[in-house]
Amino acid sequence: MNNEWSEQFPATQFRVARPTHQLEKIIEFYNKGLGLEIVGSFTNHDGYDGVMFGMPSVHYHLEFTQHTNATPILPPSEDNLLVFYIPVLALRNGIVSRLASMGYYEVEPENPYWKRNGITICDPDGWRIVLQNTNGLSKD
């Protein structure tokens, strides 16, 4: 089986890496709140601690790193998003409820498209995620 994306770009794994200044809150949000699996972590590697989240058997990961002398990281614009597609509405709503019980509530998306079938929530650093229900998604 070929795990490469294409002959033009023969990558076998994709990771989005982002700094944070509050790694423990990020771990709580993405692991306990969203339910993403921790697929790796490291401590004091050249002055950095980090954690990688992923979905089982998939080579797409989110990595968060924190330097020993971490300073607050400013969030990007309100239209920079991580979008998670969740086909079962009840399961998506369960995640939204779990995050709300942890103090993370829905925010108004900048782009109204994401309000059609999605819920937008800010993570501890102010970065936005969208929990998009794929059941009934329109093609526009």
Rank of each mutant, 00 (worst) to 15 (best):
V39A: 11
R18C: 14
G54R: 03
T12M: 07
D140R: 04
Y85E: 13
Y30L: 12
L74A: 13
W127I: 10
P10D: 04
T65N: 10
N31H: 15
S101M: 09
N135C: 08
E106F: 07
T65F: 15
G94E: 15
P72R: 10
G33C: 02
N93V: 02
G118M: 05
V51C: 05
N93R: 10
R15V: 13
P72D: 08
I26H: 03
D49C: 04
L62S: 01
Y48W: 14
P87E: 05
G35W: 01
S6T: 10
H59I: 02
T20M: 08
W127Q: 09
R116E: 14
D140S: 07
Y113L: 08
V96G: 01
Y85W: 07
E78I: 04
S101C: 07
N93K: 14
V16R: 11
V96Y: 04
A100Q: 08
A11W: 00
V58Y: 12
P76N: 13
V130Q: 02
L91V: 10
E106D: 10
N117P: 07
I26S: 04
S77E: 14
N135M: 11
F53T: 02
G94R: 12
N2G: 11
P112V: 14
N3P: 06
L74F: 05
R92F: 06
L62D: 05
G40F: 13
Y105H: 14
D46L: 09
E106M: 12
T134C: 01
Y113W: 13
E24K: 05
R15C: 11
A11G: 06
G54M: 02
L36R: 03
W5N: 13
M102E: 02
S97C: 05
T68L: 11
P72A: 10
V96S: 00
T65V: 14
G50C: 11
P19N: 09
G35E: 02
G50Y: 10
N80H: 09
M52Q: 15
